[in-house]
Nucleic acid binder design. Structure first.
Lengths: 358, 358
DNA sequence: AAAATATTCGTGTACGCACACGAAAAATTA
DNA sequence: TAATTTTTCGTGTGCGTACACGAATATTTT
C-alpha cells in the first residue's frame, strides 16, 4: 500500500512536506514540489479517506434547506428519511448534517430558515430551491463565502451549483402521456388538473405538462386535452364542487392527469361514478397515493425515488468535501412507473437492518 | 462524542478492558464486565467504524462467485460493475474483494471456481447460486468453517444464507402479464418463448411464467397462451426457423413474452412482418434489449436493477463483517417497468464522478 | 561578514480503535 | 506464610493522515 510515508521516503522528504504539496499549503520550494508531485503521480496516490476522516474529526458542517412535510404534503418525508440515513453514514467521516425546514408555500420562511442556517456556519449546503428569486439572493451570499451548494429535486437553471439531483420533469410528463395513451387508446380526451397554489415549483409542473402534451403531438395521436385549475386543493369542499361540476359538463373525459403529487386529494374529491369511468395518472409515491393505486382508483404513478434523492445529495456532498470528488452536473433520477402490483417493491424508505451489537 | 476512552474513564477501568468486553475476548471478571456493559448501554455506545477499519487494516477477504458475461449474455456485466464500485468503497474498510467467475451453463466450472475460491481463505462469500444441488455441497463446506454467505439474484430456498438480494420473480411475471393485457386489450392470445438451455436458473424463469399466467387467471381475463421451447438460442438459424414457422402456424398471436433476458435474440430471429404485428415483453436492461426498446421492436422490459444488486451485496456483507449488522432475510429489488422513454434514465452503470485530486 | 529576516522543511501529537505484552492482583498450592 | 499458578487488567504501539510548532537553511539587509 502506498502511503504518505512511503512517498516521503522515496522523495527524500518528510511526511509533512508531502502533506503540504498534497493540499497546496505552500511553503515548499518549486524543486521539491515537482519531485514529490512526480512520485505522487507515478504511484497514482490517493489519500486514504478513512484515515483522513479520522484525523480531521468533525470539521464539516453540512446543512440542508428543504420543505417540511405534514399530513397534506407527505411527499417531503421520503427525501428527509434518505437524508437521515445518509447522515448516520457520513457522521464517522467527520461530517455533521443539520436540517433546516421551511414552509413550501411561504417564501419568507425560506429566507428566514436560510438566515438561521447561515448562523450555523455551513461548510456546504444542500438546497431544494423552491423559490427562484429568493434563491438568487441566497446563492449570492454562499458564493461570496465560497460555500459549495447542491440543488435537489428542483432544477433551477443558471446557477453555479455543484450538481443537481432529481427527475427530468419534461420526460416524466412525456411518459405519463404514453401511459395515458396506452390506457385510453387513440382518439380520446383527458383533463389536466392543476393547483393555483403551485406557483413555487411551477417550473417542474409546467415541464411535466409540456411533456405530456408533446407525447401526443410527436406521435400524432389525437387527444383533446383540457385544463382545470383549482385555487386551493386543501379546501376539500371547494375542490369537490369544482372538479365534479367540470366533469359533468365534459362527459367525454376519460383520463385525468395530475402533474403534482396531489392525486390522492383529487381522488377523494371525485365522485365514484366518474372515478370508475376515468383512468387517473399522477406523480410520486406518497403513502396516500399508493393506497389509491391499491384500491384501483389510480392507474399509474410516476415516481422519482425521493428517498434516494435525499440520500445521494448527502453522500455526494460528503464525497465532495472529504474526497474532493465533484459529481456530474446533473444526476437524473429514474422515471419509475408504478402500478398496483409493483409499487410496494419500488421504494424502501429505510434499509431494514437489525443491529446485532449487544 | 462517546469513545472507548470515555467509557473506560467512567467505569474506572482501562481502555483495554472496555475493548475486551466489547469483543467478548474474555479475561474480565464478572463484576467489572457488568459494570462496563451497563455504561456501554447507557450511552448506546457504537464503535466508530472508521477508526476500527483503520486499526484492523485488511483483515477481511470478501470473495464472490458469479457467472461471467460475454457478447451473448451481457446480463451479468451490470452486477459485476456494481460489485466493482462497491469494492472500491469498502477497500478502505479493510475489505478486499476478489471475484471468481464461472460458466453459467457448466456446473463443473461452478464447483471448480468454488475450489479456487476456498483456497483463497474467504472471510465471507457472495454467491449467485446457479445450480441447486452443487450449491448444497458448497454451502455445507462454508457452514462447517462458519463462513457467512449471501445469495444474490437467484433465490434458493432452504439455506442459511445471511440474506438474499434480488427480484420477486413471480411478481415480475405478474407485472409482465398486466403490461401484456394493457397492450393487447381483452381477449387475445400470446406466446411464451423459453430456452431449453435454461435448466440452471429454471426456478426464476418458471416463477415468472407462473406469475404471468396468474395475472390473467386472477383478473379473469381471457388469454389463450401458448408456449414454445427452443433448444439453443445461440444457434441463430435454428431459432429463426423454429419461431417463424410457429408464428405462421398460429396467426392469432399478438403478444410474445420472453421470461429470460434473451428477448433481443428473439427479436433478431423474428421476421419483420410478425414483429410489427406483435407486442413483445421481456426482462432485463442489457444494452441489446434497450436498443430493441428504442427501435420499437420491444414494448416493455422488466428490469431489476442488477447494478444495485451487485453493489448492495458487497455493501451489506461489508456491514456484516465490519459493523456486525445483519441485513433483512430477503431484500427485493424493484420491478422496474422500462419503455423506450424512460429506459436510459433507469440505470446508471457507474456513478459519474470526475476525480479532482491532481 | 555579521545580523536580521524569510523560506523551507522535519518532528511530534492527535484522531478512535485493535491487539500484544507483561504487570498487578487474586486464587491456589506447598 | 511463602511460592506458584491463574485470573484480571493497564500500558504501549500502530493503522494513515492533518496540522501546529519550531528548527534548519537560504536570502536579504546592514
Amino acid at each position: 500500500m502506498i502511503t504518505i510515508k512511503s512517498i516521503a521516503k522515496e522523495a527524500n522528504v518528510s511526511e509533512g512536506t508531502v502533506d503540504r504539496v498534497l493540499h497546496d499549503r505552500g511553503g515548499v520550494s518549486k524543486k521539491t514540489e515537482e519531485r514529490v508531485k512526480k512520485i505522487l503521480k507515478k504511484h497514482n496516490f490517493k489519500v486514504n479517506p478513512v484515515a483522513r476522516a479520522l484525523a480531521m474529526k468533525n470539521k464539516f458542517n453540512l446543512l440542508t434547506l428543504m420543505p417540511n412535510y405534514d399530513r397534506d404534503n407527505l411527499f417531503w418525508k421520503s427525501p428527509y428519511l434518505g437524508i437521515l440515513e445518509a447522515s448516520a453514514e457520513v457522521k464517522n467521516y467527520g461530517v455533521t448534517v443539520i436540517n433546516y425546514f421551511f414552509d413550501q408555500f411561504d417564501s419568507d420562511s425560506y429566507l428566514n430558515q436560510f438566515e438561521a442556517l447561515m448562523d450555523a456556519k455551513p461548510s456546504a449546503v444542500v438546497i431544494v430551491p423552491t423559490f427562484a428569486k429568493e434563491t438568487k439572493q441566497i446563492v449570492d451570499r454562499l458564493e461570496k463565502l465560497e460555500i459549495p451548494y447542491l440543488f435537489f429535486n428542483i432544477d433551477l437553471e443558471g446557477f453555479d451549483n455543484i450538481s443537481f439531483i432529481g427527475q427530468d420533469s419534461y420526460m416524466g410528463g412525456y411518459v405519463a402521456g404514453k401511459l395515458m395513451h396506452l390506457s385510453l387508446g387513440d382518439q380520446t380526451s383527458s383533463l389536466i388538473v392543476q393547483s393555483r397554489l403551485n406557483v413555487n415549483n411551477y417550473y417542474a409542473i409546467s415541464k411535466r405538462i409540456e411533456g405530456f402534451n408533446d407525447y401526443f403531438k410527436k406521435n400524432k395521436i389525437k387527444n383533446e386535452c383540457m385544463t382545470l385549475s383549482i385555487d386551493n386543493l386543501n379546501d376539500a369542499a371547494y375542490t369537490k364542487e369544482k372538479i365534479n361540476s367540470f366533469l359533468e359538463q365534459h362527459d367525454s373525459i376519460k383520463g385525468i392527469f395530475v402533474p403534482s403529487s396531489r392525486i390522492s386529494t383529487i381522488v377523494e374529491a371525485i365522485k365514484d361514478s366518474s372515478l370508475k369511468k376515468c383512468q387517473l395518472i399522477g406523480f410520486d409515491n406518497t403513502e396516500q397515493n399508493i393506497q389509491c393505486l391499491e384500491n384501483d382508483s389510480v392507474s399509474f404513478l410516476i415516481s422519482q425515488k425521493p428517498f434516494e434523492q435525499g440520500y445521494e445529495s448527502i453522500r455526494l456532498m460528503t464525497d465532495f468535501l472529504v474526497k474532493h470528488k465533484k459529481p456530474a452536473d446533473k444526476i437524473y433520477s429514474p422515471i419509475d412507473i408504478l402500478t398496483k402490483e409493483n409499487a410496494r417493491y419500488n421504494e424502501r424508505n429505510e434499509r431494514e437492518f437489525q443491529h446485532n451489537d449487544n
